[in-house]
């Protein structure tokens, strides 16, 4: 697991459900065939209503047209991120789009598990609401050693919650690696 992640932030609201992360019509694509799998990156976060895409201003596309990868490797959101369906295609789509970490106030259980057990992205919980303090486009540094998030543009920084009991699974890179490492399979 890397110690620091630095990138531009893409800021979203509360209750971003899996239909907004990857609309159901795209779930037909293969996650392993390269040409199809990259479409998950292209369509990541396309279910977000445009006025709420990239807060506080909105109307900011997460991925530029004709691109498959985003310029924003960090997503900052409010509470209950990833609620809704069990589709693992959601954290997969964010990963394919190039997202490395999400910082949200809280997560829905299945999305949280999928992100970790599938080794896709690191779901980090913030100690306080941050989607009203960080703006889309702000340059952000996540310090995974000291569990801090630094807003380089605004020279502000905030605490993040410890990864807790799931940290060994994140460090191993997913549940299969974790189980192999611990000789469970």
């Amino acid at each position: 697991m890397q110690q620091k992640i630095i990138s531009r932030a893409f800021v979203l609201g509360d209750n971003i459900d899996t239909d907004q992360i990857i609309p159901a019509e795209y779930l037909v694509f293969s996650l392993t065939k390269k040409e199809e799998a990259r479409l998950y990156g292209k369509y990541a976060l396309t279910g977000i209503p445009v006025q709420e895409s990239g807060l506080p201003k909105g109307n900011i596309p997460f991925i530029e047209e004709d691109k498959y990868v985003t310029l924003f490797d960090i997503v900052v959101a409010g509470k209950n991120f990833g609620c809704g369906s069990s589709r693992e295609h959601a954290p997969f789509a964010l990963k394919m789009a190039g997202v490395q970490a999400i910082v949200a106030e809280s997560y829905a259980r299945i999305f949280y598990r999928n992100s970790i057990d599938g080794g896709f992205i690191i779901p980090i919980e913030s100690k306080i609401k941050l989607n009203d303090k960080i703006e889309t486009g702000d340059l952000i540094e996540i310090d995974l050693v000291n569990m801090r998030i630094n807003n380089i543009c605004k020279t502000t920084n905030y605490g993040l919650k410890d990864l807790g009991v799931v940290k060994p699974i994140i460090e191993a890179g997913g549940i299969f690696n974790y189980a192999k490492k611990n000789k469970m399979i």
Partner: peptide, 18 residues
């Protein structure tokens, strides 16, 4: 309860999950 594909694949091979 619901889980994702990776957890389901783990169960399919082992019959176990955390």
């Amino acid at each position: 309860t619901g889980v994702g594909n990776t957890d389901a694949a783990f169960i399919m091979g082992t019959g176990k999950i955390w």
